[in-house]
Amino acid sequence: MDRHLREIVINQSDVIVKMWLEEIETLKQANYTSNISDELFESTNEEFVGVIFESIKEQGSMKYVENFSEKIIQLGWPLSYITDGLQVFRRMTIEYILSQTEKVDSTYFSNVLTSVDKWVEPIIRQLVNEYTGNWENIVSLQRLALQELSAPLIPVLDGITIMPLVGTVDTERAKLIMENLLEGVIKHNSEVVLIDITGVPVVDTMVAHHIIQAAEAVHLIGASCILVGIRPEIAQTIVNLGIDLEKFPTKSSLQKGFLSALKYTNRKILNVEDKVEAIEKMIESLKGGDK
């Protein structure tokens, strides 16, 4: 029976494909593909239904399915496009097979359902597995990239580095901050690290505890920490919570923190005019000494 039904479907593939394409077109809005150009949508639909028929002809072969799933992922199309397409194919195929028989009993109907499910379910399983597997890999890579950007340590001068923090600091991110701080301080031979929390929306007891731990760890390897970006509301929260930040300096802005870091490293900023004037006086002094 299965072989007989498969021959009916393959021999009448043109009719079923036409029915399928018409139905899929009506689902363009529902499965979030409405923003895709008509030309690309039509060509992909034709390829999709071709993949389905090739898989039915070559039972057990999933090479067409694998290639197609990779294409859909690269295009960034939703998973609903795949699942909707296969459900429509199942329904259209069953309806067509039943329409070719004048008398349909329960046994024949059951055989049709079983046969079509036998063709379609492996394709659904393979496409969904391929799609979700690739997306999980993409999400994993994106998570790693975000982690690398979530706690950067930026060298600005010899001995001075800055770690700008943006967003919420949770336990997982706090560990990353600690690791990046310690590795960065050694890598850049830092004497002073500025931890900028201007972009941290909330500083509670847990966040402050993580920052203090990071500062203490940096101190143990011979560097100093300055906490900058203490906004008025953050300062009030810290006081109300009774958080002790006296162990390391704090500044209201990155600019003030940077000036403090210059003092820590025995540097200072001079205006160009003042520097030129000082050099001229030194030259005049040397000339006077020669006389």
Rank of each mutant, 00 (worst) to 15 (best):
Ser150Gly: 08
Ser150Tyr: 02
Leu141Ser: 02
Pro164Ala: 00
Leu127Arg: 05
Ser140Thr: 01
Tyr131His: 08
Ser150Ile: 03
Pro164Lys: 00
Leu153Cys: 12
Trp135Thr: 03
Leu165Met: 14
Leu146Tyr: 12
Ile154Cys: 13
Ile160Val: 15
Leu141Arg: 03
Glu136Ile: 03
Gln147Val: 11
Glu148Asp: 12
Ile160Ser: 05
Glu130Thr: 06
Gly159Cys: 03
Ser140Phe: 09
Ala145Glu: 06
Val156His: 03
Leu144Ala: 02
Leu127Phe: 05
Ile138Thr: 05
Gln147Ser: 15
Ala145Lys: 04
Val156Asn: 03
Val128Leu: 05
Pro155Asp: 03
Ser150Glu: 10
Glu136Cys: 00
Val139Asp: 07
Gly133Phe: 09
Leu157Pro: 05
Leu141Asp: 00
Thr132Val: 08
Gln147Arg: 14
Leu149Trp: 12
Leu144Gln: 08
Trp135Pro: 01
Gln142Tyr: 10
Ser150Asn: 06
Gln142Trp: 11
Leu165Arg: 13
Val128Asn: 06
Asn129Met: 10
Asn137Thr: 07
Asn137Ser: 12
Val156Leu: 06
Thr161Glu: 15
Glu136Thr: 07
Gly133Asn: 08
Ile162Ser: 12
Leu153Gln: 10
Tyr131Pro: 05
Glu148Thr: 06
Pro155Lys: 01
Leu127Gln: 11
Ile154Thr: 14
Ile162His: 04
Leu144Tyr: 04
Glu130His: 09
Ala145Gly: 01
Leu144His: 00
Leu165Glu: 12
Ser140Asn: 13
Leu153Gly: 12
Ile160Leu: 11
Pro152Ile: 09
Val139Pro: 01
Pro152Met: 15
Pro152Trp: 12
Glu148Trp: 00
Met163Val: 14
Ile138Trp: 01
Trp135Gln: 06
Asn129Gly: 10
Met163Asp: 13
Met163Ile: 14
Glu136Arg: 15
Arg143Cys: 08
Glu148Ser: 10
Ile160Asn: 04
Leu146Cys: 09
Leu157Ser: 02
Arg143Pro: 09
Val128Trp: 06
Thr132Trp: 01
Ile162Lys: 12
Glu148Lys: 11
Gln147Asn: 15
Gly159Trp: 04
Ser140Cys: 08
Glu136Gly: 10
Asn137Pro: 01
Asn137Ala: 07
Arg143Thr: 08
Ile162Trp: 07
Met163Leu: 15
Leu146His: 11
Leu141Thr: 05
Pro155Trp: 02
Asn129Lys: 09
Leu144Lys: 04
Pro164Gln: 04
Gly133Ile: 04
Asn137Tyr: 06
Ala151Ser: 14
Val128Thr: 10
Pro164Met: 06
Ile154Asp: 07
Leu141Gly: 04
Gln142Glu: 13
Ile162Asp: 09
Ala145Asp: 01
Ile162Arg: 09
Arg143Gly: 08
Leu149Met: 14
Val139Arg: 12
Thr161Trp: 09
Arg143Met: 11
Thr132Tyr: 04
Met163Asn: 11
Pro164Tyr: 05
Ala145Val: 02
Ile160Thr: 06
Pro155Leu: 00
